[in-house]
Design a protein around this nucleic acid. Sequence first.
DNA 1: GATGAATGAGTATTCATTCAT
DNA 2: AATGAATGAATACTCATTCAT
Lengths: 222, 222, 222, 222
Amino acid sequence: MLEGLISPSKTSILDAAEKLLGKYGYAGLSMRELAEECGLAKATIYHYFHDKQAIVLSVLERDMSRIRASTVAAAAQEENCIEKLRAVIQTHYVMTRERHAMIINVIREINGLEPHLQELKRKHMAAYYSPVVKIIEDGIAQGLFRPVNVEMTVFSLFGMIHSFVAHCMLTDEAESGDDFVDHTLSLLLYGINQDGASTETLNSEDVVFSQSHPHESVKHAA
Amino acid sequence: MLEGLISPSKTSILDAAEKLLGKYGYAGLSMRELAEECGLAKATIYHYFHDKQAIVLSVLERDMSRIRASTVAAAAQEENCIEKLRAVIQTHYVMTRERHAMIINVIREINGLEPHLQELKRKHMAAYYSPVVKIIEDGIAQGLFRPVNVEMTVFSLFGMIHSFVAHCMLTDEAESGDDFVDHTLSLLLYGINQDGASTETLNSEDVVFSQSHPHESVKHAA
Amino acid sequence: MLEGLISPSKTSILDAAEKLLGKYGYAGLSMRELAEECGLAKATIYHYFHDKQAIVLSVLERDMSRIRASTVAAAAQEENCIEKLRAVIQTHYVMTRERHAMIINVIREINGLEPHLQELKRKHMAAYYSPVVKIIEDGIAQGLFRPVNVEMTVFSLFGMIHSFVAHCMLTDEAESGDDFVDHTLSLLLYGINQDGASTETLNSEDVVFSQSHPHESVKHAA
Amino acid sequence: MLEGLISPSKTSILDAAEKLLGKYGYAGLSMRELAEECGLAKATIYHYFHDKQAIVLSVLERDMSRIRASTVAAAAQEENCIEKLRAVIQTHYVMTRERHAMIINVIREINGLEPHLQELKRKHMAAYYSPVVKIIEDGIAQGLFRPVNVEMTVFSLFGMIHSFVAHCMLTDEAESGDDFVDHTLSLLLYGINQDGASTETLNSEDVVFSQSHPHESVKHAA
DNA sequence: GATGAATGAGTATTCATTCAT
DNA sequence: AATGAATGAATACTCATTCAT
């Protein structure tokens, strides 16, 4: 939020740590490499952070609040619940890619090491997921969506996004992700079952995957 | 396949490595700890495997072929495409939990280190996803499912499963996962959109998440 | 001597050890690599030799007796003391190169580790140097050579040879060594001092080194 | 040169490494033992040097420049070419003994491992040999020496010295080396051939070797 | 605010060697 | 005669961290 008040050294440490965490994960992050990356001496880092874990937690907090802010802002620009969902998928996809899908993995790694941090992270995740929960709850209240288990649905949605980001990083495909957004929104809304309601709005083509299925995706469905 | 022919020491190394990889990931896996865990001397491990990476690759191969075998077997026991999907979700969920969601993370870690292993892993993943691709393609051919992008859909489905497993491991909730299977199958089939076709079959309750949404899930829908 | 009576496995071990000692020295010789090189299992090597040191000593003994035999044989083919010296230089140069100057280095390495082996090695070296000692002593007795300290002179001569071999191995120059033999014999006989007796017999050219000094070397001087 | 500016820890590492290299060679030099010898923790050594090879190269560079400096200084104190040669032999002999004849062996060992270091070492050796090359070239220009191949001759000379040092270390004889210097200078100047010019100046006795040859050596021959 | 120096405990890996078969 | 399996001790090197300056 008020990053202007944070010392530039601290910021450079967090930036470097974010980059290296994305590459190597928590256990693979070396303080020596971190020092080299941010241009400070190793000892200087300990002037700003108590230990390695504190750095990583700071990175996670900063990233989470940024992602949350971006997600909220993106959703706020849309009126319609469905368009809000599209905005969320798009934003979350982009930000996750930028962070090299770091967060999910780092959390899991830290978690294995530090059981007492679970609650802290659960809170973070609640804050993280809650904007999307709100959107779906609103949709249900408006009669747009059926009364699904909202929390579970949000997990599912984020799972789809992360899975796709992971796949892209594995294969180094650098596409825009538009097709992914269309596919994911369509799947989230209508599923794969054949019924009259959903198919009539489908009309785009896919280029990402080999087997083309021309009828996939929903373009700005109302 | 023919594990009976493999020496017990080798098996014990792989077993221990599988366990520790689930806990700590690739970088966090220590050869000292592995030796303790499998009851052999450190040097003995190197009698069976060239290096740490070779161990981890063996674990991954073994797990992948096991998961694939289980998934295929589970699906083969069902006639109906939808029931096949349910079986896949159930099996994959259970096996992923047993392996502490290890595979996806380890692959990503290794991948960061060894660019030339990408192709190998892509092949593995193809084999891994292909049974599910087949089911959905059959469903589409039978007119049961709409013509979605199948490969993308499979990614989405596995993403949902992995995400949920990760969440459960984070919170140490040890439920059976039945609710999860119902939710996921329902979401995959119908999405969240409100329409006449899907809502009438919903009738179960959720205990997993705090906010209860009584109408979620599809029980053995045909 | 009677190598026909030695088992082929034992011979292959010694051959492999000789090769690797030349490459890596004593400390750098690994039993694993030795086993690979000679095509036997590590444990099999211990069937033939008590330990690593015993192997190396066997190699040294074998090489030394071979070099001694070759040197003696080469000298025996010549009548003249000077021609005997030329033969010795030539033979010793070739055999040292073939063994990658191994012996001198290995002896020094072992010596650092095993003080009680000194006497053994002194005996070996005495046997090793004695043929040349004999030649020079004969030359002195015949009034051909001046009464130098023979033992020291032999050390000097072998020093020159080893130094040149080391230089050639360092620079990977693969010359025949004829120039070297001429140079060394000339230096040994006449030194560098300018006087009437020696210069008149010099008539060959040098190609080995950059600065050419056309008057170097003695061709079959009588 | 400016060793006063180098940290005492770094110097103590190099000193210890020089000592151990002389004893055990490159492969036999253990970082653990080095740490013990210089009184620092293993990890501290890596604060000053990137790896073992860097340490050894530093030792070699330091020793080579020291030997070169001493050799040049010793030669500069003499007017006469022959006396310069005597000074060089004396100095080189002493310094090589002090370093346990380490350099030649270490270079050969490293060279086997690192082909791309050859050129570096050739340069070093050029600088190392060049002072002596200069002396002999001057002697030839002055008509004192016959026109031998100078570079080869320098190799031969250093070979004699190193060989003798090695012999002394093997037998732990701790003599002053005066006899050796006389012998070597005499051999270098006049060789062993019987002729009028050289014998008349010989008049000393040898104690180093068993067989005494009373007429060896040149005492300050002009 | 920043760092060079230092370290104990750790890393993955290799060592020479033994032994039951 | 030959070896697969096993190991304690060593290898070079890195770790996160501290502290005096």
